[in-house]
Structure formats: structure tokens, C-alpha cells
Write a protein that binds this DNA or RNA. Sequence first.
DNA 1: AATGAATGAGCCTTCATTCAT
DNA 2: AATGAATGAAGGCTCATTCAT
Lengths: 217, 217, 217, 217
Amino acid sequence: MVAILLEAAAQVLETKGLEGFNTNAVAQRAGVSIGSLYQYFAGKDALTIALMQRENDRFYQEALAALDHLDGPLALDYLIGVAVRQQFARPRLAKLLDVEESRPELRTALSGKGSMRTLLMEILAREGLPQQQDADVATRDLLAIIRGLVDAAGEREETDTAGLIRRVTAAVLGYLTMMSGADTERNDAAPRAETPQPADKRSESASTVASRQSKRS
Amino acid sequence: MVAILLEAAAQVLETKGLEGFNTNAVAQRAGVSIGSLYQYFAGKDALTIALMQRENDRFYQEALAALDHLDGPLALDYLIGVAVRQQFARPRLAKLLDVEESRPELRTALSGKGSMRTLLMEILAREGLPQQQDADVATRDLLAIIRGLVDAAGEREETDTAGLIRRVTAAVLGYLTMMSGADTERNDAAPRAETPQPADKRSESASTVASRQSKRS
Amino acid sequence: MVAILLEAAAQVLETKGLEGFNTNAVAQRAGVSIGSLYQYFAGKDALTIALMQRENDRFYQEALAALDHLDGPLALDYLIGVAVRQQFARPRLAKLLDVEESRPELRTALSGKGSMRTLLMEILAREGLPQQQDADVATRDLLAIIRGLVDAAGEREETDTAGLIRRVTAAVLGYLTMMSGADTERNDAAPRAETPQPADKRSESASTVASRQSKRS
Amino acid sequence: MVAILLEAAAQVLETKGLEGFNTNAVAQRAGVSIGSLYQYFAGKDALTIALMQRENDRFYQEALAALDHLDGPLALDYLIGVAVRQQFARPRLAKLLDVEESRPELRTALSGKGSMRTLLMEILAREGLPQQQDADVATRDLLAIIRGLVDAAGEREETDTAGLIRRVTAAVLGYLTMMSGADTERNDAAPRAETPQPADKRSESASTVASRQSKRS
DNA sequence: AATGAATGAGCCTTCATTCAT
DNA sequence: AATGAATGAAGGCTCATTCAT
């Protein structure tokens, strides 16, 4: 019954959005009475939280296998595939849950255990991938990039998962490569250095990278 | 008056989130009566739409100057700076408006003119940047990446704009570089090519990139 | 089982008040299923009525012994003691049941047999107590006085039963004495008699009693 | 509008009891929408509290005049009259509000200022009335007696206010007389004193008073 | 134009009661 | 007989919207 209600909640969220996400709609879609819903969930927020955790766990179970690939790049490939497929399977649901997650009432109740973050962070540290100055920030950034790309794809109702995975992979590796060994000093307002530095020693502006690019082509 | 109401709406959205975003709160924050609000906006949705357009236009005005930089990389630099600063100035507002944008009622009414997309697409076509197979997709992806990164940074209440711009730039250029000249054929299930190809001829998996990376270091 | 449920109902009523008095809470406190409750009671009202009768009967059993004291004053002493102790043992319960009793649905179903009223009326008629013009009214008034005093004491969470009994006794005897032989004619708007009359011939105003009081002291 | 709603609340409480006292019923009886109710009262509890205060104030205004009677007995007469008339005017309302008052949420919010208690206490201290050992307890007891008597009369739907006032006066004065100068020592279980003491020196049992009574008659 | 009191549909939640097991 | 999951009417409350002033 809990499963039925959670799935109903997910579908309501997907179908009618946050506006139409109410307990009556969920109960109706689940084919049960509103009273039954409250027999299994303390309230609407509890239902939402449970749904978040279901999605989290669902992803986490699949993603754990990524750790079996000892090679960093392969593990990352795998993880990206899982992440994209998961979020792409129900992009609207993922996005709306993400929004709900920012509500303080829900945020606090959400157990952070077994999150994708820890998984990705562990993989990033592995052999074969461009090492990052600040692993924590890099992890969060990559997740944000993935989420951003997949959400947008979902909104456009793309169907080509393979193509999407390719683009996400490009974005992730591009970020990792560009940020590899980036220094953390402030240099936004400062004049650009006259002499180009190796890509793995500094963060790049579009212009410096582009100059290198154009030389190659 | 319209301006006052829009700013009030923006502030309410930022302060109290979607939950607290109601017409009475907006009118109160604006210091006018609820009746006045309805004199200028047909309804709540109209207010929301107008706010979206204000944010869009606001950005567009600043971003237009990017076109003055004839050099592609410089123009991109400029555009990224504007985009990040704009969205980072009011990250919660940006994100919540983005969510609202997914509601069909609002989506349809939103005029796509003068959007960031056209701007970015034009710049991507310029000299000095890695050229893309599918410019349209690349444009959307980059916007999604920027939005994802800045939203996440906003949620974490980061304050280092310069650092954020650096990371966004890295992500954008990383994506562009990696995707440069990527083919569009499906090859997800296909076996990986044994011999690495130049980066501008194919989209890369983590493993192939990583192999190059490790050779460099 | 009936007894268990009734006691559970009593405890719920005491603990959580009218607000928290619901069938699920009663069943839970009784340690049985809600279904069992409905096996023994036709509904919530039936349960409430049964509880009222239990309290009534309980009191009545103890109070019956008062009739063994052939002397009026002693019998009254005894009855007061029982009444106060009974109600004071669970003052909140007594009061809330009293409130419930005013609901028409419950009132009609409540059998008046074996009530405290008949007992008290019989005792009031006995030798040695100030005789009343209208025994029925006096009986009801005394019960109201007792209930009022004990309820108030219970609400203040007094613990001194002996002191309370003393005050109740004073009130009861005070009433009986003052009302002894009171006439029943209307004289509210009439001018006060100039010459004080004996206490057992008329109902007294504060001023006439007071004048006697001050002479005594 | 506040007045209309309060009166509607009072009528609903009287007509349908605590069970039927809900915001929709109040709004309907007031002839306004439920929304209007919430424009003037923060919630159901706020409405209840306001009603309590209205009743309190209403009484207090009338009762204040009692202090004009410098003579204790006259002042007491007056106060009793006001109290009985007030509570007798709407006995069910008074009783149900009294019950509600025991709910902690309401109790705390109720400003104790200008209560009947302070008024009665002041009058009890005046010249011409039997002085009490513990004025505070006496005050509370008298209020309890009055409330008890009037509630009971109201429940029986008596109509003879004058008669009721007479009985209440008797009860009040009886209590005051009997308790006058009562000692506070414990003597419940102790054997009764063989030699009668003056009424104003001790609290009496039914038997000792009765013996005096029977001698008089 | 501006005001803001009034409206009422609709949401969240509780709880008395039923009934299949 | 006992169980307790399921039901759904009903109640408290919010908020978008209207309209008389």
C-alpha cells in the first residue's frame, strides 16, 4: 500500500505538477480513500519525504554497482549512465522533488545517507581521472551539471537517452579536465596573464582556451 | 506601479518561496491594496508571467553588449559573466521562476523573443570557439549547465561570484571542447573504439578521455 | 471487557479531555482493537452513556450505606463525605461527564433510577435537619452546590479532601439553614422588610443576615 | 462584524452545544462567509477566547456598580443579583464557555484582568459580612456555588429568576456564616467535640448544626 | 484608480464506523 | 469474537478573486 501510494504521488506530481499535488488527488489516483493515505503517512510532507527517499534509494541501489568498476573512468561512465537514465526516466518528477527539497520542513527530515554525492566523490578520487583541487565542490558542480542537462532534456521531452548520455559525459569530462588542478586564487577582476599556462594549472577563460583550440584546428 | 508590484512579487518569491507566494502577500509587500494588483494584472498567473519577462528582459539588455565583442571567446566570456551574475544575484528567484515556467499555463504565454538562447547561439557561431555539430542543442545544453551550476551555488548560499564564474566557464568550455564536431549517430550500445580519435571528431567517454589525461600527466 | 473499555474511556477523558476523547484512543488505551469496542458498544455515545452509568452506580453503591444512619445529620454527613470523595477522586472525569450529560442524545438515554437525588431527598426529610419547603428544589440545589464546589476544587488541583469536605458541609448546612421554611412567594422587586424575621420564616438577603451577624459579634 | 460573529458564536454554542460549535456553523448563523470569520479571528480558538472575554467584560461592567454600595451586605446582594442574572440569561453558554476555559490553549490566552473574583473578594472584606479566614478560598468557593446553582437551574430551564436569586443568596450567606472564622486545623477523622462551639469559631458538621437546629424548633 | 471587506472553492486532516479476514 | 485496514463525511483554514464604495 505504501508503494501504491508513493507511485500515485509520483504520478500526480508528474501529471499535475506542484499545483495539483494534493493528498486527495494522490489518494484518488491510488484508488484508495483519503483516510487510507493518512494511515500510512503522517501528513502530506511525510508522503513527499518518503517519495524523495524512494527515488534516492532507487538510484542508489543501481548506482552502487559503479564502485565495482575499479577503473575511475569506467566507474564514472557507469555512474553517469545510471544517473542520467534514472533522472531521465521521470525528469519532471525529479525536478519537482528537487524543488520541494528546498523547503526547510522537508530538508531537515531527509536523511542524507547513501546519497549520490558520496558515490561520485569516491569515484572522482580514483585513478585515471583528472584530479580536482576541491573535490567537494567538483562533486556538487558535476551533480548540478548533470541535473541541469537532464532536466532541460526532460522538459524538451527528448527521447534519445544515448545522445543525452553522450552530452552529459562530455560536460562532466570537460569540467573535470578544465578544472583539473585549478588554483583557487581570485583572479576575476585581474588582467589576464599574458603568458598562457598549462590547462591543468589554472582555470581558463573562454578566450585563452579558444586561442588554443583555434591553433589546433 | 507595475514595477513596484513585480519587485514585490520577486521579493515574496525569494523570501517565502512558492508556498508563500500569494497575491495578498505581494500586494502587502508592495504597499498597495490587493485590488490595485488586479488593476494591473489579470490574475496571479499574469503577474508571474510578467515577472518572468522582466527577469528575461533585464538579462537580455545587459547581455546584448556581448555582441559588441567581435571575438567569439571574449563575447562568450562576457555572456557567461552576465548570465552568472544575473542569476546569482537572486538565485532563489531564478530557480523558482524556472519551476513555474514548467507549468503549461505559463509556458504558452511566455514570448520567446529576445531570449538568451538566440544570443548564445549567435556567439557560438563566431570565430575562435569550438564549432558544434548541432548548434541548437549545444546552446540549450550550455544554458542548462549554467543554470544548474548557478542554482546549486545559490542553494548553498555561496558568495564567491568570481569563483563561480570560473567554474561555469570551465564547464562551458569543457562541454564545447568535448562536443566539438561530435557526430550525432547513435553509439551508446556500440563497443568502444579501440583506437582513440581526436577530440573534435567524436563524443568521448570517460575512459577514452582519461587515457589521454593520464598520458599527459 | 466492558469494564476494561469503560475504564479506558474514563482515563482518556481525564487525560486528554473532550478533545482527545475518541474511540480509537479508548480502544488503544484499553489495549484492544477498535473493532472490539464496537462489539460491546453500539457507538461512541453508548460508550459515554455506559460510563456515566458506571460512575452513577459506583457512587450509588457507596452512598446507600448513608441510609443506615437513622439520624438525619449523621446520614447527611456520611452522604456528603461519599459524594465529595467520589467526585473528588476524579474531578475532571466527573466534570466532563457532566458536560456530556447536557447533550440531548445522551440525556434521554440516561436512566434516572438509583440516582443520588432520591437518596439525598430521603435523608433531607429525616429528623434533625432543617426542613425545607420545597424538598425537590433543595435536593437539586444541594447537589449543584456540591458539584460546583468539588469541580472547582478539582480544577485548582486541590488535594486536601478533609478541608474540602468541611467547606462543602458548611455550604450545604448553610443553605439548608437559610432556606429552612423559606416561603415560595415572589418578593424580589418588593421592598425589604424593615424588621428582620426569623431565619426559618423567610429567605434572607445579605443585608438582613448581616445585620444579625453584626449584632452577634 | 466582530460583534455579529461573536453573537453568532454564542448562539451556535447555545443551540448546538460543543459538538456543533464549528466555524462553518458560526459563519452561517452570522450570515457571512467562512472567509469573513477568518478576517476577524485568527482561528477558532481566537473566536472562543473573544467570546469568553465579551461575556466577562459584559458582566464586569454591570458588576462594577456593586462597589458603589459601601455597605458590604448590600454590595453582596447587588453582586449576586448581577451574577445570577448574567449567567442565568444564557446558562448553557456560560457553562460551555466554562468548560472550554479548561483547555490549556485557551486558558493561557485569557487575560485574568477585571474578573468577578477580584470584585467579590473586595466586597467580602467589607464591613457587615461574616469575615473569612481564607478570603481567597471563600471567594472561589462562592463563585463555584453560584455557578453550580445557576447552571443547574439553567439546565432545568427554570424561569423564576427572583426565586433563584433568593436561593443563591441563601447559599452564599449560609456558606459565609458557617465558615466565618473557621479554623484551618484538620479534624475530619477526629471525634466531634462534645461541647458545641459558637458557629463563627469552627466549621460545622451536619450533626452539630442539626442539633442546634432541632433545639431552636 | 484605489481600496479592502467579502466570498467560497478547495485543501489538509481527523475520526466514527464498517467489514472482510 | 477479535482484528485493524479502509472508508468518507465533516471540520479548520487559505487564498485567488470580486465588487461596492
